[in-house]
Amino acid sequence: MDQGYEKEKFETFKIKTSVAKKFRNYCRTISKSQSMTLRHMVDFFEMNGVSPQDNLGDTISTLKGQVIKRSNAVIAIIKNIEKIHHKPTTAILQSLFEETSNIDKEDEDSFEFGTPTLITENEELEYYKKAYYKTQETNNDLKKDIKELLKNIKYVRNNFGMGHYRLNITKETLEHFKQKFENVYNNNPTETRR
């Protein structure tokens, strides 16, 4: 008897003889009663949302085989990518990190920090005063040089177009100004140009 259905009574169906024989043979192959086999079939169709007329194409076992083949192919591709791309790149990066760590250790060993000299507050104040006066002096010199250059600029009117300004100084004077400006910027670096 079917477990859980012992007290239910039987119902008869009218089906063709060939279909009944085929159904009974199928029930024997799966070792279930006719009632339970039919119940499992109906549950299968309802649970999977499939109709008995639907053709699923390949059997589930062949679909499973195809999925396994595809997953094996994906695994092979991933291993190949790892072997060809990731391992060499990782090795290169690792060797670079080892080299930089060796360079850093050598630099630390070769460079020694001396003991800092302590200065008093007055010495520090004097240092900043001198630096301030030196900057002021340089600034005043630059102002004088710019005024000198501006004195030597003359407006020239052009007959066939726009007028322009001409700087009336010698080549040596211009070179002297260039050198002076370069010395100012090279000897007194700003915060960003250290």
Rank of each mutant, 00 (worst) to 15 (best):
R157T: 15
T12Y: 13
I77A: 13
N25E: 04
V156E: 03
H164Q: 02
N72F: 03
S33N: 02
V42P: 03
Y133V: 11
P189C: 01
T190P: 01
K147M: 09
K171F: 04
N48V: 02
T90H: 14
I68E: 03
I103R: 00
T59Q: 06
F177M: 07
N158G: 01
D2H: 02
A73N: 08
K171E: 05
I75A: 07
Q53A: 05
F10N: 13
K14S: 14
E98A: 09
C27V: 10
Q136I: 15
R193C: 08
N183Y: 08
K105F: 02
V19Q: 14
R70M: 10
G163S: 07
L125N: 11
T17S: 10
F113C: 13
S51T: 07
V50W: 04
L38M: 15
N187E: 10
N55W: 10
K130T: 09
T115N: 12
E106R: 07
G163D: 00
I30S: 08
K14C: 08
V184R: 05
K147N: 14
N186P: 00
F45K: 00
D145C: 13
E148D: 15
N80T: 08
T170Q: 02
K180Y: 06
K79C: 00
T17R: 09
Y128E: 09
N72M: 05
I15V: 12
V74R: 09
E8A: 11
T89E: 10
H164Y: 08
F177L: 11
N102G: 14
S51G: 03
L150T: 11
E126S: 14
E112P: 04
E112C: 14
K87G: 04
I77R: 12
T135V: 12
S51H: 09
K14P: 07
F23C: 06
L167S: 00
F177C: 05
K105V: 02
L93I: 15
D2G: 02
K79T: 03
K69I: 01
A76M: 08
T135H: 06
G65V: 03
N140A: 06
F177N: 01
N122F: 12
T115E: 12
M36E: 07
L149Q: 10
T173W: 05
K32N: 07
L93W: 14
E172R: 09
Y127V: 03
E8D: 09
A73E: 09
L150Q: 13
T120H: 01
H86W: 08
T192L: 13
S101W: 08
C27T: 11
F177W: 15
V50I: 06
L56I: 04
L96I: 13
F177Q: 02
S33E: 01
T59C: 12
F181E: 00
I15R: 04
E98L: 05
L56N: 06
Q179K: 05
E175C: 03
T170F: 02
I75N: 06
I77C: 11
S33Q: 03
E123P: 06
K180P: 00
N122S: 12
N140R: 11
E121F: 09
V184S: 04
L93R: 15
V74Q: 06
D141S: 13
N188I: 10
F111Q: 14
K22Q: 07
T120Q: 00
N158E: 02
L63G: 10
L93V: 14
N25G: 12
F44I: 01
F23Q: 04
T115D: 14
K105D: 04
T100R: 10
N25W: 05
L150W: 01
D145A: 10
E172A: 13
H176G: 03
I119E: 00
G65I: 02
K79W: 01
T17H: 05
